[in-house]
Design a protein around this nucleic acid. Structure first.
Lengths: 350, 350
DNA sequence: CTGTTAGCGCGTTCAA
DNA sequence: TTGAACGCGCTAACAG
């Protein structure tokens, strides 16, 4: 466009970019011509030339999980305020796709990148190893990779959750987890096992690894619940697992929490909306989002400080799906009657 | 990179682009150099030069709604198979943001664009009016805009749903809708009102417009439920509204469906997982996604056929949240005992 | 098969 | 202030 319509060319660039040193008259001419021609600035050309990227890559593993959605929203707000736009890419819990998405984002010359890895993300890390854009990794990361990270203390949350169940008198507590190639999940299992051990319940500990889909966790839970001595409490390691587990409980015609208790990692809006509400472990989304952005923003501003690993604390949100343990009405010798008192989460030193 | 490392320059381009007419030897050299330097192709420059865009813009209104999420996933698969990548942008149910997102996507020179408008999308349409990229609009559109569209027959679905409730004996059925500047919602209200009228229940018809958040629908529902003659059935116009309504029902300590029935537009995974399951209206995501993609793909291939408006049919998924109407135990004269028989949706000719 | 060259649309200098 | 020229990293068309 430019001169064809208005009067000059290099001038047009200035006007459209919002530079000050242009006379009002020509400025008008340019805007008018732009409107008339339906002109749209070519961001590709602009960024190629100026080498000043305006977008931030965000690769998320699973848009099905409301924690990630909320995180996306939070990050979007932060980015927007700072004048950046998000290049959102979805790995769909598929390591190959994840690598592809990372390449895509990087090839678009982003100013920085936020990665929430999906399960089995070793390839992703390799892809990122020699990449020089500011990077923050979040949620599912250990501290072995040299990048800024923001995570939730999953281990501790799992300990808290398990203790809660134990305090309700449960002993046969099963932990249902999607996959062990997610750092998160490993930490959650660790915490669970540790809490069981410390309570002297290791022989009741039971970890079920079921795969990434809710269909799989459904099947796993169903078979678990049909065992002779079925668990009195279920602890699910992620919201997909929760979905499957709940369906299984439903189909097994068990009542929540009378027949079986359920505690879920990953809080979601729907969990607090029905009766019984699902007790869950809530991650501090806002805080995580803010932390991620601060870390990234520092790097964008060129402050190459030390690598930081931030660890946030999750919160137990007790609702009605966790209740006092009752022995299932089984042919065994009834109730060992060493029922534990109802109590809330044991206080701990921070 | 190129010659600096390997041997040539234009050749490098061919190798990296996967052209055939290059000798094995040089090909090796190039790849090796690329790996050594950690070379990444600059997609901006490539697309600028070749003028062959490789991504499709997808602007969605609300990542909180699982229908849209599933649609995103479906479209992602289709796009990927056809060699495109999705540029995903999130309007967050904010018309201004939506316009901004559209501009962003368009400025990145996408090959085509899919828009699912958010409420009050007139600006968005203006933005798109003189845009020459292949465009498909979906879900919340009427047929007044000259673009290919794929929608669900919301009106009919609302009629089906309302009839279902009426058949269960309900008369005081309230329709709770987020906003009327969504075409969808208007159609849903229309269908509801029409069904009520045809059943001679217009004096019981009650439409509550509550705003876009679940907090607002919570408040609206709560006040509705505390009226002297409260509705015996609630029909919510979207999943946000459902969330709020359910919370209100819960806090009002009403039982579902004994005290009040609930039917929800927009199905979500969690609705089928608890007891009572939430009866809902399920849109055919797969089919919608496929239709959108087909329409877009044709345009990408340059087939400028007539403008098409596809309309899909939604499906009533009856679960346990809708039950036979019972008069609330009120001080009034009890039960007019003209209880309708339980029945499923009346059959209709397609 | 290979190297050379021009130019995609824009931002940025510099001279006018 | 303004316009002309140059080049961002790459592809395409051509000449060797």
């Amino acid at each position: 466009m430019a001169n064809a319509a208005g009067v000059s060319l290099g001038t047009a660039s200035k006007v459209l970019a919002g530079a000050a040193n242009v006379s009002e008259a020509r400025r008008r001419l340019v805007w008018e011509a732009a409107r008339r021609l339906g002109y749209r600035r070519n961001a590709l050309a602009a960024e190629l030339r100026s080498n000043r990227p305006t977008s931030i890559g965000l690769v998320v593993p699973d848009l099905t999980n409301s924690f990630f959605i909320e995180l996306v929203c939070a990050l979007e707000d932060h980015a927007e305020k700072a004048g950046y736009r998000l290049l959102l890419a979805h790995a769909q819990e598929d390591p190959e796709r994840e690598v592809e998405r990372i390449r895509f984002v990087l090839s678009r010359q982003v100013a920085g990148m936020i990665l929430i890895p999906c399960h089995g993300y070793q390839h992703a890390i390799d892809e990122l190893r020699e990449c020089d854009v500011p990077l923050v990794m979040a949620d599912r990361v250990d501290n072995t990779f040299p990048a800024n990270t923001v995570t939730t203390d999953s281990r501790r949350a799992a300990v808290d959750g398990t203790r809660h169940l134990i305090a309700l008198g449960h002993r046969r507590i099963a932990f249902i987890v999607n996959a062990l190639d997610i750092v998160n999940s490993r930490e959650r299992v660790d915490g669970y096992l540790d809490a069981m051990r410390r309570a002297g319940l290791e022989r009741f500990a039971r970890v079920v690894v079921c795969g990434m889909t809710d269909a799989e966790s459904y099947a796993a839970t169903l078979s678990l619940l049909s065992e002779r001595e079925r668990p009195t409490a279920l602890f699910t390691g992620a919201s997909v697992a929760t979905l499957g587990a709940l369906r299984a409980i439903r189909d097994a015609e068990l009542r929540l929490p009378d027949d079986v208790s359920l505690l879920s990692f990953d809080d979601a809006p729907w969990m607090s909306v029905l009766r019984p509400g699902i007790s869950s472990i809530h991650q501090p989304v806002e805080a995580v989002g803010r932390a991620i952005w601060n870390l990234l923003h520092k790097q964008l501003d060129g402050e190459t400080s030390e690598i930081v690993h931030l660890r946030m604390r999750a919160e137990l949100r007790l609702r009605e799906s966790t209740g006092v343990a009752r022995e299932p009405s089984s042919p065994d010798t009834a109730s060992t009657s060493e029922s534990a008192p109802v109590s809330s989460v044991p206080a701990e030193r921070a």
